[in-house]
Design a protein around this nucleic acid. Structure first.
Lengths: 342, 342
DNA sequence: CTGTTAGCGCCTTCAT
DNA sequence: ATGAAGGCGCTAACAG
């Protein structure tokens, strides 16, 4: 039950002052090598541990950054966080994780708690786009606490963000389907209040136009990002007078559901029907009928967001730093859409 | 660029003392309703945010708990963390996440950093069992910082843990295979220095014995928990003079690899060969040939670990609390081992 | 009910 | 090269 050891305890033991101990511990040049060694040795002996809380209070720097995500038990966000952690750990930063579960109130609450906790920055993927949380977010900016968006961002002046080019991802996926010979391509679109889904949709549309296919409103369904939503969407689509011959899904989960339903109804994939998902979830690769998908480089995204944060922190002059990093999506074609390899 | 507002700022503005402001903010009964309202209102107006760091330094309570896991981008650990967060958030605790990447040095480093950060407790799943990190862990205990193990634990006196009954999981999986008519059941065992894998192995063995099958050393292979390891293991097993007719894998990933190889060699699953994995990774359910697996209830495990921590924290009297919670594993039989449903 | 005082553990001027 | 002193922001004990 060893009690907490402070620099005063060390000082008392060596009959010097706490200031000297502090200097020795912090490699302050103005100290004799002898006392430094003495202090360091006693510190080890006494099992001294610096109280980061006190240091943080004094310095105004907590060495903590807050990360806000919709949920953590999704491969994408977990990987982003891993990237963030990997980049920030060597710099001495800790990551405090908050989940919103797509709940707007929780999002606001999380931001406030992180500010109270004196985090040195906030990296977040936004859950909801409402006036109220835009207000809170603006307050963060006004407090000059570095704020970086990743993936799901809000378009605000002076705020940095790291995203992938969702337009390009949607475009590439759709173009690939066209190249495979599909002509009636449907799209499972996500929540259109979020930029990422809007852009995937735009990319899809543009690819159709650029390749002489006409856009058909009936082929676009807004879906949630889960398997059941995909099943239902496929059911709806296959009941159309002219059912599609391919689906570009903005979510791997919905894409998987669609595949299940399409197969259920007797279509052969990819011969009769092709599917491309988005997100490169682990299961897409593991399936016997592996699913083509767009990779979002989550690790890289996390690392990049962390790097942008570090830049921002180390930017002493008050020149406003606003960095918008856009990563390149990678289309991974697999069995669910690869007719050549048949 | 609004500057930091402290209770002194509020006090000055209202011409009262900081103590009074503090009391008003903390719902101290000894304060007139009038001043309380006044203080609260001005606090809102001035956009005051309590500095948790200062409060933590003063109270010796940071309201942070550290969570140490091998990695975060695995469904299991992400779900456990989600459970922890869900349970601790309402109590005002934050979760600081550290990854070890199975690196012993990193594990020790993480523990020390968390102690420096004055966390109120540490919840961890151990990566390595070495003398050195056992020493550091014992130091945590001696500091009387609550420590709770989940899943991968160390057997130490006075330390609580939340695990699942891996023995029972291994037993149930193996028994199920026997009931499906398999008689030559192989086992892909994990790192035997970790209790969880040892116990799964023991369960496997016991199930064989209890059902009149004899244990065959050649049917047991130590493997890593990834797809390639499973492929290689299956190759080795199928080359035996008397190859097995089933595999109980201590990992879903290795199990998946094994399935791929077994199918590759022309066996029909589950008719010719059955496989059961462990962990209930999302993909096991998604596969066309869905994989039987043992569910570890990660969410529940996280919640339980958090609950044990809270109990420990609220246990004022020094009565040593040592709680060993053992959750019940759930065998989920799917296509990879279900001959009845054929 | 409110003010005064002091200290949590640390670091950084300002002296010496 | 070291000591003395003060303060980061907050709250609890002690007065009154």
């Amino acid at each position: 039950m060893s009690e907490k050891v402070t620099i005063y305890d060390i000082a008392k033991k060596l009959d010097i002052t706490a200031a000297t101990v502090s200097r020795a511990l912090n490699n302050n040049p103005k100290i004799s090598p002898a006392t430094r060694k003495l202090v360091l040795d006693t510190a080890t002996t006494m099992n001294y541990k610096q109280n980061k809380l006190a240091q943080a209070l004094r310095s105004g720097k907590s060495n903590n950054v807050g990360v806000i995500v919709p949920r953590i038990d999704s491969n994408f966000f977990a990987s982003v966080i891993r990237g963030i952690e990997e980049e920030l750990h060597p710099e001495g930063y800790h990551v405090i994780i908050c989940q919103t579960h797509e709940d707007e109130k929780r999002e606001i609450e999380n931001i406030n708690t992180l500010l109270n906790a004196q985090v040195d920055g906030i990296l977040m993927s936004i859950s909801n786009v409402t006036k109220e949380n835009e207000l809170v977010i603006k307050r963060v900016i006004s407090k000059s606490v570095p704020l970086i968006f990743f993936d799901r961002k809000l378009n605000l002046d002076g705020v940095s963000s790291v995203t992938i080019n969702d337009f390009e991802g949607g475009y590439a996926a759709t173009k690939h389907l066209i190249e495979e010979g599909c002509t009636k391509i449907a799209h499972l679109a996500g929540d259109q209040s979020l930029e990422i889904y809007k852009n995937r949709f735009k990319g899809y549309k543009q690819a159709l136009v650029d390749n002489g296919l006409k856009f058909n409103e009936k082929y676009v369904l807004r879906t949630k990002s889960n398997v059941d939503a995909g099943i239902n969407a496929a059911k709806t689509l296959l009941q159309l007078d002219t059912p599609p011959d391919a689906i570009f899904s903005s979510s791997d989960f919905a894409g998987l559901g669609a595949i299940q339903e399409v197969k259920e109804q007797g279509f052969k994939i990819p011969n009769d029907f092709c599917v491309v998902g988005f997100g490169n979830e682990p299961f897409t690769k593991f399936m016997e009928l592996s699913i083509s998908s767009v990779d979002q480089s989550p690790m890289e995204m996390g690392k990049m967001a962390a790097k942008v944060f570090l830049e921002q922190i180390n930017n002493n002059d008050n020149s406003k730093v606003e960095k918008k990093v856009v990563l390149v999506p990678k289309l991974l074609t697999r069995k669910s859409s690869n007719r050549q390899n048949q």
